[in-house]
Design a protein around this nucleic acid. Structure first.
Length: 296
DNA sequence: AAATTGGTCAACCGCAATAAA
DNA sequence: TTTTATTGCGGTTGACCAATT
């Protein structure tokens, strides 16, 4: 049958958002909460498709978003999470509060990929790089599937172990597992260029601060609705958990919304740090791998 | 000073998953 | 159980800006 694209209707505007449109969207979300994006264009008069509205909100207007200037810790974390999870940006973003998956994806594509390939060229791409390179999908003969799985998991495990232990700034993991996001005091990002419009967005975000009831919730308010609650705003700390789904990955994972990023990562860490290494089977049980094939 | 090149990032597109009817 | 509607995700594109020639 084939469902028509959401934006097939005539008169749907595309391209960059104007500050006016942003304001309209923000004030609508302010009144109604995020979610039910379908209704946004009709109720606001915005000539944008619902998808575009949602994207604009989650990637740009949502309060608490940090932009640009990835710290070293963030960088390392992304590299290693990418080695572990593959290109599941939403899952990776769930470990980086205030970062959007789009932002991380862009950062990966523009900076890290090159950086890693440079490292690869200059020698053996230590750890993550290698894992990343290998994580490209290639049709491996069935017989090798298991072996490669174990190899890659081992590599990823080492990579993440390094990431967790290397960084002095990250007091984590060695002793007690903690949710990563809390471990990373984020330096305030200076906005070099692009600041002009970004700052206007920040202003918009500030407008929302009053709306973001501390503690309660936006989460609570957003909880109306079924899946919309997942994307519900969240602002502030909750923000990260909001736009991205579960760390389990975008697809394949049953919506384990109850298990937020934090527990998932704790599980990951305990798996990682578990000394029963090398006995893949047992270890694998706890691995948040939605689909082992993702490692190939 | 103008033209070209390369980098960055916001936004779009298509597909998949899931909920609702 | 099947169909339809909606949302979420990842890949990709294209516009903009800065650096270089």
């Amino acid at each position: 049958m084939g469902r028509p694209p959401c934006c097939e209707k005539t008169g749907v505007k595309k391209g960059p958002w104007t500050p006016e449109e942003d304001l309209v969207l923000v004030s609508y979300v302010q009144d109604h909460g995020p979610g039910n994006w379908r209704a946004v264009p009709t109720n606001t008069g915005l000539m944008r498709c619902s998808k575009s509205c949602r994207l604009r909100w989650t990637n740009y207007l949502r309060p608490g978003i940090k932009r640009g200037n990835f710290s070293d810790q963030e960088e390392k974390l992304i590299i290693h999470l990418q080695a572990l999870l593959g290109n599941r940006w939403a899952a990776i973003a769930s470990y980086l509060p205030d970062r959007t998956d789009n932002d991380i994806k862009n950062f990966w594509n523009t900076h890290l990929k090159k950086k890693l390939s440079r490292m690869d060229a200059g020698g053996d791409g230590a750890g993550a790089g290698g894992a990343v390179a290998r994580s490209g999908r290639s049709a491996a003969p069935k017989g090798q599937w298991e072996r490669r799985l174990q190899t890659d998991i081992h590599t990823a495990r080492q990579a993440l172990r390094e990431a967790l232990s290397l960084d002095p700034a990250l007091p984590l993991a060695k002793t007690e597992p903690q949710p990563l996001p809390l471990l990373m005091p984020q330096p305030a990002p200076a906005q070099p260029s692009q600041a002009a419009y970004a700052s206007s967005a920040e202003n918009i975000a500030r407008l929302l601060e009053g709306w973001m009831r501390p503690g309660t919730g936006s989460a609570g308010k957003a909880s109306s609705g079924s899946r919309s609650s997942a994307s519900a705003v969240s602002g502030g700390e909750g923000a990260s958990a909001s736009h991205s789904s579960t760390p389990g990955g975008s697809t394949g994972t049953s919506k384990a919304e109850d298990a937020g990023p934090v527990p998932a990562f704790s599980m990951l860490e305990s798996w990682l740090l578990d000394d029963g290494m090398g006995h893949g089977d047992a270890g694998l049980m706890g691995v948040p791998l939605a689909d082992p094939c993702e490692f190939f």
